[in-house]
């Protein structure tokens, strides 16, 4: 195997690892997800999982999980205008609405309530298919 083939093959291993990790988070949005959980899901040691992840990703594992959850929460907030923030917090593995709101604001620069208002006001006709 030459270096180029090795690189493609190791990139594909990483892609599959990320896909399986995303699928795991997708199925466990309500849980608090740790590196240990993700490594176990990928049948790797924490050390090995972390090493592969770090080699290719510009995010840390925690940043990755948090971004995934915040983006999903943002979609859910927008398609579900009646749901309250406490319920949303629980749905994404946060014990209380204030820690959820803080994390949300850190990611999007705006509180969940204001985010929803802003999206409702500016919802474009092609919101779903940019």
């Amino acid at each position: 195997m030459n270096d180029k083939t090795k690189n493609i093959s190791s990139k594909q291993v990483y892609t599959r690892l990320i896909n399986k990790t995303e699928d795991y988070i997708e199925n466990n949005l309500k849980e608090v997800i740790s590196l240990k959980d993700l490594a176990r899901n990928a049948h790797l040691s924490e050390f090995h999982f972390h090493r592969i992840f770090k080699k290719y990703s510009s995010e840390t594992v925690n940043e990755f999980v948090t971004r995934f959850k915040m983006e999903r929460a943002a979609i859910f907030l927008c398609v579900n205008p009646k749901i309250n923030i406490t319920t949303i917090s629980m749905e994404y593995g946060y014990n209380d609405s204030s820690s959820f709101s803080r994390t949300f604001k850190k990611h999007f620069g705006i509180s969940p309530i204001n985010y929803r208002k802003q999206q409702e006001l500016s919802r474009k006709s092609n919101w779903f298919m940019k």
Partner: peptide, 22 residues
Amino acid sequence: YGEAWQFMYQEWLFKDKAKPRD
């Protein structure tokens, strides 16, 4: 396709025809 997606959300889901699931 864009119009069809818009119909499903704006004209159907958001008009309280069902409750969205995450």
